[in-house]
């Protein structure tokens, strides 16, 4: 398990998003126990309050849950939830921007579909 922090956003958010990534990629499977606040803060030398704040974000999103006396566990359907969220983000971050830029450049819908085809072909050649 490898964390990497920078100054881009508050530390608790970075903890939350990196744990989320680990859940999404299967580093922690559904039903798995995730490291405790105690473990994480001792290992990463991060203030326990900060780690807890990050973990609570995942609790609020319904990705992990606390089981009394046992610790924190990845909830059933967590990966699916992250996937749905990311698809929504994909639409907002990429598709909307793509259409906006295409419109500015006068690229028609048909032309756009051709470009997607072309991109797929290129992808095949490269892979």
């Amino acid at each position: 398990m490898q964390f990497h922090f920078d100054e881009s956003s508050p530390l608790y958010q970075q903890i939350a998003s990196q744990l989320e990534e680990m859940i999404f990629t299967g580093g922690f499977d559904e039903g798995d126990k995730v490291p405790s606040t105690t473990q994480l803060s001792q290992q990463l030398h991060i203030n326990p309050a900060t780690v807890l704040k990050g973990m609570n974000q995942l609790v609020d999103k319904g990705l992990i849950e606390k089981r009394r006396g046992l610790g924190m566990f990845v909830m059933k359907g967590a990966q699916q939830k992250i996937m749905e969220q990311r698809k929504e983000d994909f639409y907002n971050d990429y598709v909307k921007t793509l259409l906006l830029e295409a419109h500015k450049l006068g690229i028609t819908k048909q032309h756009l579909q051709d470009l997607i085809e072309r991109g797929e072909q290129d992808g095949k050649i490269n892979s």
Binding site: T38, S41, Q42, Q43, H45, N47, P48
Partner: peptide, 13 residues
């Protein structure tokens, strides 16, 4: 120093 930071958090927790 690393050891101290870890022990500090341990003591705090």
């Amino acid at each position: 120093r690393e050891l101290f930071y870890k022990e500090l958090i341990k003591a705090f927790q």
